[in-house]
Structure formats: structure tokens, C-alpha cells
């Protein structure tokens, strides 16, 4: 499984990428929408994990732009906000909407629900 993580908080996203790596998920990360689009131009992803609120382009708009490059790319939205409006927008547009801080097991369960189980070596289970 290959995942794209996007959050403007570098220390969050790089730690999360490393932890996912320990669990067999290949995770690339970006700290801006522009970086994420650059990565998505050259690499196919199974899931995008997107922070809803980022400077400039937020996660909801970024998902639309990513889908222009990878039309079937599902999204998990992460947010520090918990408003009803945010929830409605995120839940309508993504496969999951999780409020920070998110336990890594919850994230992995969400990945499995969306993309199916993987082999722990970075690939999908046959």
C-alpha cells in the first residue's frame, strides 16, 4: 500500500510517515498542496490522507486537484477542527473524516476498510 500524507505541520507528518513505514505502509509526505500535487504527478497512491485546513489550498480542494491526476484516489481527511460544518463537508467528500489526534491503529483500520488489507511489506495482499 502506498499512501500520500499531506499536512502543513512537518513534525507531525514526518513522524506519521515513519510510523506507517514500520507497519508496512509506504508513506510519502508533503507539507503543502503544491508539494502533494508534485508527488502525485509521478507516483500512484492508494490513499491520500489530507489535512482539511492548510495555508493556501486546503484538503478538500486538494482532493479535487489530486483526482484530476488520479481519478480513483480515495481520501481520508484529518482535521483539528470538529465543527458540524467541517464534518459535513469532509464526510461528504472523503471516505473518512478523522479528528486529530488520531491513533495509528484507527488510521490503519481506516486504510484497510478503504483499500483492503495489505501484506505488511508495502503491497496489497493477494
Amino acid at each position: 500500500m502506498r499512501v500520500l500524507l499531506v499536512d502543513d505541520e512537518h513534525e507531525l507528518v514526518c513522524a506519521l510517515a515513519e510510523r506507517l513505514g514500520f507497519r508496512g505502509v509506504r508513506a510519502d509526505y508533503a507539507v503543502s498542496a503544491e508539494q502533494a500535487l508534485e508527488l502525485a504527478r509521478t507516483t500512484a497512491y492508494d490513499i491520500a490522507v489530507l489535512d482539511v485546513k492548510m495555508p493556501g489550498m486546503g484538503g478538500l480542494e486538494l482532493h479535487q486537484r489530486l483526482r484530476e491526476l488520479q481519478p480513483d484516489l480515495p481520501a481520508v481527511f484529518l482535521t483539528g477542527h470538529g465543527s458540524e460544518l467541517d464534518f459535513a463537508a469532509g464526510a461528504a467528500r472523503g471516505e473518512a473524516y478523522l479528528v486529530k489526534p488520531v491513533g495509528i491503529e484507527v488510521l490503519l483500520e481506516t486504510f484497510a476498510r478503504i483499500a483492503g488489507p495489505w501484506d505488511g511489506q508495502g503491497g496489497r495482499q493477494p
Binding site: 505541520e9 513522524a15 506519521l16 483539528g80 486529530k100 488520531v102
Partner: peptide, 18 residues
Amino acid sequence: VSHELKNSLAMINENAGL
């Protein structure tokens, strides 16, 4: 403020987990 606190907690959570 709650958004800022959530972000800090998320970073603490992730780095403690690491």
C-alpha cells in the same frame, strides 16, 4: 485556540508513538 491545541496534541501523540 482549540485548533492549535489539537495540532499540538497530534504532534505530541505522533512523536510519543514514534
